[in-house]
Design a protein around this nucleic acid. Sequence first.
DNA 1: CTGAAAGCGCTTACAG
DNA 2: CTGAAAGCGCTTACAG
Lengths: 359, 359
Amino acid sequence: MRHHSKANPYQRRQPSAGRATIHDVAAAAAVSVATVSRVLNGTANVMPETLARVRAAVDTLNFVPSSVARNLSLQRTNTLGLLFPEISGPFFAQSLRGIESVASAAGYNLLIYSMSAHPDINAITSIPMGAQNTDGLLIMSDAVSDDFVRKLYAMHMPLVLVYRSLPGLPLPAVTVENKHGARRLVEHLIGLGHRRIAFINGPRANEDSDWRARGYYEALAAHGLTHDPALAVEGGFSEETGAAGARELLARGAEFTALFAADDEMAIGAIAVLNAAGLRVPQDVAVVGFDDIVTARYIQPPLTTVRAPTEQVGREAVRLLLAAIAGAPPPAQTLLLPVELVIRQSCGYRPRTNDERPM
Amino acid sequence: MRHHSKANPYQRRQPSAGRATIHDVAAAAAVSVATVSRVLNGTANVMPETLARVRAAVDTLNFVPSSVARNLSLQRTNTLGLLFPEISGPFFAQSLRGIESVASAAGYNLLIYSMSAHPDINAITSIPMGAQNTDGLLIMSDAVSDDFVRKLYAMHMPLVLVYRSLPGLPLPAVTVENKHGARRLVEHLIGLGHRRIAFINGPRANEDSDWRARGYYEALAAHGLTHDPALAVEGGFSEETGAAGARELLARGAEFTALFAADDEMAIGAIAVLNAAGLRVPQDVAVVGFDDIVTARYIQPPLTTVRAPTEQVGREAVRLLLAAIAGAPPPAQTLLLPVELVIRQSCGYRPRTNDERPM
DNA sequence: CTGAAAGCGCTTACAG
DNA sequence: CTGAAAGCGCTTACAG
């Protein structure tokens, strides 16, 4: 008989079985809920005695306001959503760290939606996803379909694309200088005299992969080197696929004096395979990676790579999202964060050694 | 004039400026909101034509139900909260991964509260924290004060302690076998003939530190070795503090043939300092760490350590939390997840080499 | 300075 | 099979 009880509205609530609500506090302090709300939010002047009574009631009742009720009333949630494929690797962890720091500095919480849990668009469109418990969404990687992004856009959900793009929609986006970094790396190898440079790319249909591949081809072309298809294989941004890529190159009998792996993890896998095949790095083959994950510095030989500012990507992404929530128009173009060439020993170049172990 | 408009209740809502609500859908489909709710949730039989009309309306309006309204009505949020100090290191990232996997398998989302953003208990008790937008909380590490945990407990919030405890409250808790792992490690060193084993501990007042220290002392005592205070220093679970600890030991002129660092990161920092001082690892001093972070395998020499099942900790923590939410009584004691000794080269023991690079 | 009441957008026990 | 209405726990424009 929860409904249709017109009897005595003041007895509507039982003495409160579960957590205390604002009504319990109001009753205990002998004031209206409006007043309780005001002292909670400091949103109006309240008489000192009233204030004290309310505070006391809040204390004894262990009252914590329900943010879901508050959110519903205020039409904002103070939380930012994160759509990502799965938590994995240093790449995501570092980005998350940046996201976390500026989000919490701005008073926002983070809601993590794992796309692996919501593979079905329907599941997303329907209840569990409930896009409205979030003030804005960070869409990471290619985990989310273009269609779904368009749907969110049509709903006026503030959106920022991270490590991905979506031509046609005026959305803020942020990523790193993939092409430029790859080009610098390959040009460094060319500068060291290498002419036959193998390439283990990232997964097909991944934007990071695409740009890194372009950087590779551009560098070759810029230096009058034709690219030999036998020197390029596809990988998957993991040690295993890097190892597989190296095995395939060796199996093909491809001749190369240098190898560019599109990320550090693949470079590490590749080095293991090269070593196992009796090839020394960098004497027999120079190897370079991409990202500068922590391990890159510790592996033998220390890995020459390009530092991707993943944490900064996270920070900038949140800044863009907060701006979007505030109603700012999206920037005209994708924010491309600068990368930095990190020369260590795996490429065979040894000007100095300070970089190996900054301690 | 949002309120007090008794005029025509059916015109209460404008043609909808922002996102569509259930009322917009109901109007478009010429049914009641109750019916819309029913087709959305599949919670009752609906006539085929009605169903089709509603579906069409949902589609054209790009309707996504507000989960905050739904949560308020249902009195549950389908999200789990995570209270942690700050996102950092592989330790947290791995745990998060485990947490994520079982949470999303059970249909729960994750809300991350960074304690660095809410250092003030007041800030937590008051609005921003709003503990009620979460069905349960995972309390990681010592980020949260005991008092606050007690308050949450008093509010009947389902709780699980991760990597920490709180004697006196019957709360589910999960962590790893810190003491046992440390003891095995030190006994391994003793078995290799070491008698003077230095120790760089974790931060003071940290439970992992405490237990690892106990394991160290127990191992010494069990083998009749007295522990020399000059051989123990305090660190902070980071490369920097590991390096500082090693420097301090050297500065003291402490004599030792082995060193146990309470985590891998400190071991890595310490090795760098030892090397810089002209000491070879393991020939001059054997070094062991704890956790088995990814880098442990790649550093030179590969690090002997103990594998902490961080991902499993995350998984078990969520399982316990879901059980608590479902009303299960808390387990009688802390769940201690087993660790595993990982012998590599930094301790000087070389039975075989397969473990170095499983590729 | 304070209260009564409507509204935020859902769900669901009643009553057809 | 479907609708009217109350309720979830807050906030806030009105009106004292």
